[in-house]
Computed example of a mutant assay.
Amino acid sequence: MDEYAKQYEDCAWIPFEDLEKFMEEALVHAGVPKDDAKIIKEVLIASDKRGIDSHGIGRLKPIYIDRIDIGIMNPVTEIEVLKDQAATAVLDAHNGMGHVAGHKAMEMAIEKAKKYGLGMVAVRNSNHYGIAGYYATMATDEGMIGITGTNARPSIAPTHGVENMLGTNPLTFGIPTDEEFPFVLDCATSVSQRGKIEVYGRAGKELPEGWVIDHEGKTRTDTQQVLKDLTTGMAALTPLGGIGETTGGYKGFGYATVVEILSAALQDGSWMKALNGFDDEHKPIPYPLGHFFIAINPEFFMGLETFKRIAGTICRELRASKKAPGEDYIFTAGEKEHLAYQFRKEHGCPVPPSLQKVMITLRDRFKMDYQWDFEK
């Protein structure tokens, strides 16, 4: 893991519990009820614990507190149950915190799956809900398969197009296994996503070619300008598979569209350009996102233990398969995140200098009693 730590040489390592406490207090100061703040910080720290630095404390201020400040996100989440039937439900989050709505929805899906074998809950008028994998692992913790997806502000250009139309729209699966960790596939339907580009921006690095295109369909690597142009529509992310059809970009485009439909049509919600976050005068307005959550109970099939054994065996056989020249290991989904957690639970979460400044800004603004080691 020495090589793992090297990529964070300029970072301060902060214990999980310190970051959790800080995030919860900051959210409460921003107007979020304490019980809701606990849920939100759990989702955010889950990201940092797993090494998904794009969706943890780095999102606390720009995605949540800043949007609360300008009045486009409600700190108090009032969830309305629009429909609740045997194995399905539809919720309206009324522009509240996406993590709170997501947690409630997956809880409902799990309870339905305990009774009926399957449960699905759709949500409308929500907001960014953090890492989708958090909700999938809510299900795996209960011995179930968890599936979730969400639409997002337009970022991806359709194959053969250059206009940002679809969100990064993750389609996420959590699958219990007989190993120490579940199989968790949590990724955007674009080659990359804004959060990762923000990580590159904080590190002052240029983007790899093929992540972003301009209006002429040419790749862009200028990170800071890309972050601005993604907002104004002057740049777009490429779908999984990349530019055009040669490397399968139409597949990522198709999956992103599936998530868009399931995040809007089931719940009579909003989609694509309606999620842009700006009005005709380019003033910020809410992002009325939609999500869906599915829990599947293996006990209603051939039993949980059988399922976990076969799922785990498939993962082990994949890892044991023949390696490419120069490669010594094959990772299955969720394994790198598990390894990151094993390292970080001993060392804490890495916080780069740019994010340290943000934490100091929030601390000073809310008059919170923190003195970080990186300030010495």
Rank of each mutant, 00 (worst) to 15 (best):
K273M: 06
K345W: 00
E20C: 02
P288L: 05
V351E: 02
W372Q: 07
F343P: 00
Q225V: 02
E107F: 07
A340H: 14
F293I: 05
I243Y: 06
G56M: 08
L166S: 09
K376E: 09
G326T: 03
R202A: 07
A26Q: 03
E260D: 09
L240W: 06
V28R: 09
A46I: 02
I40M: 15
G210H: 09
V121P: 04
K49W: 06
D84W: 07
Y135P: 08
R202E: 12
D279M: 02
Y250N: 09
E206D: 14
S270T: 05
H103W: 15
F343H: 14
M368T: 02
G119N: 07
E9Y: 06
G242C: 04
G326Y: 01
A86H: 11
H103K: 12
A152S: 15
A157D: 08
E375V: 04
C349M: 12
E299C: 01
I360V: 15
L185W: 13
Y200N: 09
G117K: 04
Y370R: 08
F173N: 03
T77G: 00
N276C: 11
G31M: 00
I156S: 09
H160L: 13
Y255K: 01
F173T: 05
N74A: 11
A295M: 04
P62W: 13
A333F: 13
I147M: 15
A136V: 12
N127F: 13
M1R: 02
L339W: 15
A101F: 10
F181D: 00
A236W: 08
G119K: 11
V212M: 11
Q267T: 10
R153Q: 14
T306G: 12
V100I: 10
G146M: 07
E24R: 15
P208F: 04
V81W: 01
E281R: 12
G252P: 04
P158R: 05
T159S: 10
Q267F: 00
K228H: 06
K283W: 01
G277W: 05
G98C: 13
K251F: 02
I131E: 06
N169F: 01
R153N: 10
E78W: 02
V199I: 14
M302T: 11
E299N: 15
G254C: 08
I63E: 11
G303S: 03
D35C: 03
T219I: 01
A46D: 11
E107Y: 06
H291E: 03
A139W: 08
V162I: 12
Y4R: 11
G174D: 04
R365W: 01
I57Q: 06
V81P: 01
L230E: 09
G334F: 09
V191P: 03
A340P: 01
P239K: 02
K357V: 13
G71I: 08
A320S: 14
R59W: 03
A12W: 07
L304T: 03
S155N: 13
E163G: 00
K112I: 08
A136S: 15
I57V: 15
A340N: 14
Q85Y: 10
A132D: 06
V32N: 07
T137S: 14
C187V: 12
T361L: 11
I14K: 00
E179S: 07
G31L: 05
A188L: 00
L44V: 02
A87P: 04
R344E: 04
M234L: 12
D373P: 02
K41R: 13
P182V: 05
I213P: 11
A295G: 07
D66K: 12
A136E: 07
E209C: 03
D279A: 09
F253N: 10
E78R: 09
F22I: 00
G149L: 10
H29S: 12
